[in-house]
Amino acid sequence: MRNKPQFIPNRGELKRKAVNYKTGMEIKLDEATLKKMEQLVENSSAEFLSETVESLKGLREALGRAATDPSARREVLEHIREEAFQIKGMGGVFGYPLLTEFAKSLHDFLKELEDLDELQQEIVSIHIDTLYVVVSHKIKGSGGPLEAQLRASLKAAVDKAKPAAKPAP
């Protein structure tokens, strides 16, 4: 490392290995290939949904554990955070943007937490229920009246846990 930047030319070995004028596919992605890629994703969609159902079941059980055993709360918090992160990343890939949106809401809610008190457990529970609704109804869109209703109820729940604003002096 040095103070004066040193520029290192890229050797271009990988490009030489893969880019040519004879074999392979057009660099500009064509419709047919894009369709095939999208079909691949679609083919895994059912597996994603069934894994998400299992994940939500696991979250429901974990939440029950946190309610009865306060010493398990931190571990449960970590578990829920991890699952929320996974659903956040995967939902939209498989055509369920609402799963991504609601899992992000859950992940954001848990981000700074170090414990799960009763109110926070309730908020998590509402998130899990809402995610269930999306999965069980296989809701693929994000702009209809049901989606708006789900979004509003989730927001109301999260707002409940926010500290009340201080009155103006």
């Binding site: 490392m1 040095r2 040193q6």
Partner: peptide, 11 residues
């Protein structure tokens, strides 16, 4: 792969 970039080494 097809648009390789040069590298920079600086502190």
């Amino acid at each position: 792969i097809a648009r390789p970039r040069d590298f920079v080494s600086v502190k």
